[in-house]
Design a protein around this nucleic acid. Structure first.
Lengths: 178, 178
DNA sequence: CAATGCATGTAATGAGTTACATGATTCC
DNA sequence: GGAATCATGTAACTCATTACATGCATTG
């Protein structure tokens, strides 16, 4: 089993989801396309780690709602205890920054402005998500007993990081303006 | 050409390097194993984007020092101007945090302590690297005219991010202690 | 005397992306 | 009328990791 498999189990233990929804929820710490998620869910099902039911919808396509099994839950708990592999970051923007001295100031400024705009949007979205969570689950969300605790921690982390990114961009733009 | 190829060109335009060195330098924004770097360098050489010379060493194995060609430089400059693809982050630790409510407090605390220790080491290393760069290149490093400007920006960013990570870990440990 | 660092490469396998395929509804 | 959202899947391809292979020097 690979990390993505465990990531999916981790989401399903919080609440039953469709593959479509899982692909979106995954965004906080792992990016995967639906073409990777759907076959993996089938594999998890074959291994008896998850089950699913068809849910008919009107106006929307039908969906499969996956739930974790006891076997899946046990396997996940075991995995969580082990020391994680180092994170992987692959950021094309940073690769371009590395060679930024090759380009002119205007291009450099444009690249950083675009980055800032993208992150401002993310921050707005993130703040709303955190607000929603607090409204829905209350103070309990800041306790390890809440099943939303982990997701809440990750959202707070992401928000801080995205704010830091903007501060860094501003600092660089300051240097470029000199 | 893929992003890793451009990343390698970006490092070579700063200074000629061996494949071994490139693999290490890459760490700031892209992680790749030598088994991916060496064949790609050969491909870049075949495409006329880089050249290399053998350098004989005593006490150490011989090495190949790669340099970028004018063709490679032009291609890189062109690529730098284009809007980058969104970053990819895959962090197993964060996946485990997501399901942290499943485990006991002790395990949770251990996971966060391990993360903090790992990041403290990174910070120490990062600070030293920044210090070295400032000593070696002086104030000029904060100007777009320096070929080390990009690398300097990335190191400063990484340092801030790593410090933020530790602050976040401390915050979480505070919540866990309640 | 075992592990780590330097240094380069290949082969097999696994992970991840892009493109193809379908189809209703809603929003602009 | 075209794009976006919901929803699931497959096939071809590229990208990335692990393991195999070699060998000398230094450090603990």
């Amino acid at each position: 089993m690979n990390a993505l498999g465990y990531a999916l189990l981790g989401m399903l233990v919080r609440k039953p989801c469709s593959g479509y929804e899982l692909t979106q929820l995954l965004e906080v710490f792992w990016q995967a396309k639906h073409s990777q998620v759907y076959p993996l869910l089938m594999k998890l099902e074959q291994d008896g780690l998850v089950t699913f039911v068809y849910v008919k919808q009107t106006g929307k396509p039908d969906k499969k709602i996956y739930s974790i099994t006891d076997k899946g839950k046990a396997l996940l708990a075991e995995w969580t205890r082990k020391s994680p592999a180092p994170p992987v970051i692959r950021d094309e923007f940073l690769a371009k920054v590395y060679s930024i001295w090759l380009t002119d100031k205007d291009t450099a400024q444009r690249l950083f402005h675009e980055r800032m705009t993208a992150y401002e949007e993310k921050i707005a979205f993130r703040k709303e998500e955190i607000k929603k969570m607090k409204e829905e689950y209350g103070d309990e969300i800041e306790s390890i007993t809440s099943r939303h605790f982990g997701r809440y921690l990750l959202f707070c982390r992401k928000l801080k990081q995205e704010e830091e990114e903007i501060a860094w961009c501003r600092w660089v733009l300051g240097l470029l303006a000199k």
